[in-house]
Nucleic acid binder design. Sequence first.
DNA 1: AATGAATGAGGTTTCATTCAT
DNA 2: GATGAATGAAACCTCATTCAT
Lengths: 175, 175, 175, 175
Amino acid sequence: MSPRADALRNRARVLAAADEVFVEHGSTASTEEVARRAGVGVGTVFRHFPTKEALRDAVYAERLRRVGEEASRLADNTDAGAAFHEFFELLAGTSGPNQALTEALAASATDDQDVRGSLGVLLDRAQRAGAVRSDVGVDEVIALLIGATQATTWTADVSLRGRTLNIILDGLRPH
Amino acid sequence: MSPRADALRNRARVLAAADEVFVEHGSTASTEEVARRAGVGVGTVFRHFPTKEALRDAVYAERLRRVGEEASRLADNTDAGAAFHEFFELLAGTSGPNQALTEALAASATDDQDVRGSLGVLLDRAQRAGAVRSDVGVDEVIALLIGATQATTWTADVSLRGRTLNIILDGLRPH
Amino acid sequence: MSPRADALRNRARVLAAADEVFVEHGSTASTEEVARRAGVGVGTVFRHFPTKEALRDAVYAERLRRVGEEASRLADNTDAGAAFHEFFELLAGTSGPNQALTEALAASATDDQDVRGSLGVLLDRAQRAGAVRSDVGVDEVIALLIGATQATTWTADVSLRGRTLNIILDGLRPH
Amino acid sequence: MSPRADALRNRARVLAAADEVFVEHGSTASTEEVARRAGVGVGTVFRHFPTKEALRDAVYAERLRRVGEEASRLADNTDAGAAFHEFFELLAGTSGPNQALTEALAASATDDQDVRGSLGVLLDRAQRAGAVRSDVGVDEVIALLIGATQATTWTADVSLRGRTLNIILDGLRPH
DNA sequence: AATGAATGAGGTTTCATTCAT
DNA sequence: GATGAATGAAACCTCATTCAT
């Protein structure tokens, strides 16, 4: 009934298309390509995101939101150490497409308090469970997530990815 | 004074200029900017490197060469563990411009046997000295160099960079 | 309360808004801006004026109507010469926003008989009073109004505007 | 022999084409249209004039130069009054395309000292000859040139143009 | 070999106009 | 009738690449 429903749906479609296209071709991909993928005209993309930069920011913000969601979801896990490790594997590990999430962490200043909060809980519980050394904070975790993502992105060799990630996780263990 | 000498000198100047410009503005910087920095015309850039991609590849290859050089130089150090750590700090640590070297590792497939050889020596000696765990190979080291670079690039906070790098190096220690 | 009343009111609001916006930003201002100023949607603007050009023409026609009104109002003045001079000063003189009225004269072919009639009366009375030379007609007056407007628009210097306008009015005096 | 010869010729061709196109369609005409008229690619236009605004300014500057030239040429005329009148007729009178010259006067701030100088000489000599009233300066003349141009542009009726221009020139006569 | 002017495809953005709600 | 989201042509501008000098 409301015209907003359609508009919101289009906004979401554009955002999803931009996410996909940015994953495939980087955020320098043309706005026309994003529009084509979303099945809308260029004008529609610019109506929702008045600038290329605004579109990129929105994509990153949405990804950050999903990072926070994943962290929150895992924080419910009874084994806090396993949850922390799973989080790393999810974002930086063998599963490819999720790596885009980490790009958002790298791109934004990450003063996003929601994400920091979710990560903080996850980290705190892992530290209390004795699974992560106590002298690291959220910032180190973010830096290492970014690093681990890039490290594993470099190679297509899945087992190498796993070994590399484990080295980083070993560095995070107490002592 | 032979024409070939001039040509070679120009090639080197273009390469050096491209390296500088790419460090400053990324490899999306215009070829015109590279030519200006090198003090030559665009035509000259394209004579030596027929494509933007060829120029970028050449810059990366040159950087890789320097990575190998650094590794070789440090391999002479009597303290093999210290040499290994210094290498990491040099490429991924607090010192900014050297990080461009790691970009080359990340960008190329790194089947460059010279670099692999130099790194192999450095790693092997550190492992024999008991400073690095024995279950890692050159590939893991490359992946971690890339990761450490990105992790430390993310933040401008120098002390955070140091702490992050140390976590990765801790992960590389025996046990 | 009848639907037609609403529609007419909207038409008037759009017209007024367009006039304002065109004065401020020229007639290249976007229709969206006009709609915003009028407090209606773009669709409403296009319902009343099917084309940008139609809107501009309507604005000019409305301005012409106001030119005629001013001329008629001044024609009642007992001092016909003063009325004629005041008319020039009103449209082309120091007072800024009224200059938009003259734009309408310049833009349209000005075969508008109402305006020509009102101007004719004003001119005729001034000529009978001996304030304006007898060898000029309405067309010359219109041309000079346009010219005087542009001449005074050129500079922000108010006293220069006045002196320029006076020269033109001197040219219109008998002998 | 020098590559500059061709470049300069192209610059001149672009400038000439822009002048023509701006006369025909106003200075909002597209740069592509200018390029097409000049027989070059868009890139060439932007190489010589990095901005649309820069192109417009260059066109106006060139027109101003021609205004100054005309004024200087006429200043040699023995009959100073006739020279002054001829100048007005040339710029604002019946001859159509020259009106573009006046547009440049209107568009620029006209702090161009060359033009002011040339006009000053022409005016001064006319005043000394008793053909122009002594209480007007260069600014009034410029304003009136602009006004006369717009006044005569309004109509296609050549005799009306002449009569309008004469009224303005009458206003400039002593007493 | 070197130069840098020329080219034109392609990218971002705006805006008149249409049309589903 | 009104709304404003969607459309896509067109504008400005950039830049890799070519080529005449």
